[in-house]
């Protein structure tokens, strides 16, 4: 798997986790489970570390996409980009090939990840 793509997936998942632990719905479920969450600041630190490991141009594109769409990396399912539903080239249908390189959807510009 392309290293930058893997970092981008991790970064977006981490952004999602940061939002989740702040969400009231999630807090309610965690409370029902008898769980306590503390130390959210360590997620922010981990996020900063991941961001620093990305090339500036990639990080800038990630932030722009996040600001515009609320996500920057989208899965490819059934050969379609799940950001805009457009088909991706057939030669990339196998995930082992698709995830080898960092690619953006030709239509919506989001980073593509083959699940």
């Amino acid at each position: 798997m392309h290293k930058i793509l893997q970092t981008l997936v991790m970064l977006q998942d981490l952004d999602c986790m940061i939002d989740e632990v702040a969400s009231k719905d999630v807090k309610n479920v965690e409370k029902k489970m008898g769980l306590k969450i503390k130390g959210e600041e360590q997620l922010q630190e981990a996020k900063e570390r991941l961001e620093q490991s990305l090339p500036p141009a990639v990080l800038s594109k990630y932030h722009k996409l996040m600001k515009r769409f609320g996500r920057a990396v989208v899965p490819v399912v059934g050969n379609n980009c799940m950001g805009c539903n457009v088909s991706v080239p057939k030669r990339l249908m196998v995930r082992e090939i698709g995830n080898r390189e960092l690619r953006n959807c030709e239509r919506c510009g989001m980073f593509l990840y083959w699940v």
């Binding site: 893997q6 997936v9 998942d13 981490l14 769980l35 699940v115």
Partner: peptide, 17 residues
């Protein structure tokens, strides 16, 4: 696709409690 993608998140979640 990669173990690390899920392991890393589960590990971070455990770090919160």
């Amino acid at each position: 696709f990669r173990t690390a993608l899920v392991y890393d998140l589960l590990h971070k979640r455990e770090g919160l409690g």
